[in-house]
Amino acid sequence: MGSILRIILQRLALGVLTLIIVSLVIFAAVNALPGSFATAILGQAATPEAVAAMEQTLGLDKPAVTRYFSWLFAAVQGDFGTSLSQANFASFAGSVADTGVTVADTLAPRFRNTLFLAGLTALIAVPVAVTLGVLAALYRNSAFDRATNIFTLSSISSPEFFMAYVLILFLAVLNPWLPSLSNISDDMTLGERVRTSMLPALTLTLIVTAHMMRMTRAAIINLLASPYIEMARLKGMSPFRVIVKHALPNALAPIVNVIALNLAYLITGVVVIEVVFVYPGIGQLFVDSVKTRDIPVVQACCLIFAAAYILLNLLADVLSIISNPRLRHPK
């Protein structure tokens, strides 16, 4: 077990390094975009004087290198700063006093919503995908296998917004069962939240199921040719038992990896779904912040996205090590 701990620590250290590199790249990329926060906010009203005044108030007139390192220094201490738009209000209000709204305050409710949607989707998608995968492997090349493949592959091949509109058409317009607006808020009960978020969750389920289901099926079928499966069959075990008891545990590593990748996607890549269903998640905030060049918020979002990938991949690796005795007890 000591080796696993060492691997985790190693990977975490590498993860931190990755995060710093990500933040550097993002900072450089946002700075390289034409326009700045001031021109984005002022729009047509961006006279050179107004831009200069706003940049000076917000400290944007300092060189980029200085701004990056002062941000990094604060971020390492856990302070992600104040979003430029909030700082801008404070200066407009004519008071230097901080409005007290930090990047963390802006992000936290949105991130909670994103996690809620990702969690709800995972609760539906993962059991469905794994079950379908096992069944497809069990009845491979049957009509059921083909139907499942065709259905999941066509839903993953369609654009996300198209699947969203199809579901809206059938579940909200023609049969008004579910709301087409998923504007969840803090004062809703859990039941209401689940109902309100159901359409985006179902859309995402359609999108992520194919990956996981196909990987489950492939990994199991791959193992079915192994001698020990043949042995199990020769013992007279039922095909279902062979697959669930003997094949599935050994196929866990690739399945867990794909699940982790899909979970990371659910946290980072659902902007389109958020827009279509008006879901107040982190994706819309991220896009808005890029549009207005609100660098502190962009940075914090990117760090969350990168951290989600790093941690979920780490988790997947640890789980596959644990599920594989050969890796668990290396020579």
Binding site: P179, N183, V275, V278
Partner: peptide, 19 residues
Amino acid sequence: AIAINDSSARMTALMTGQV
């Protein structure tokens, strides 16, 4: 007042009676 910047989503919301 719900912010719905996507125009299809906004029209659907009116047609399904959510706004």
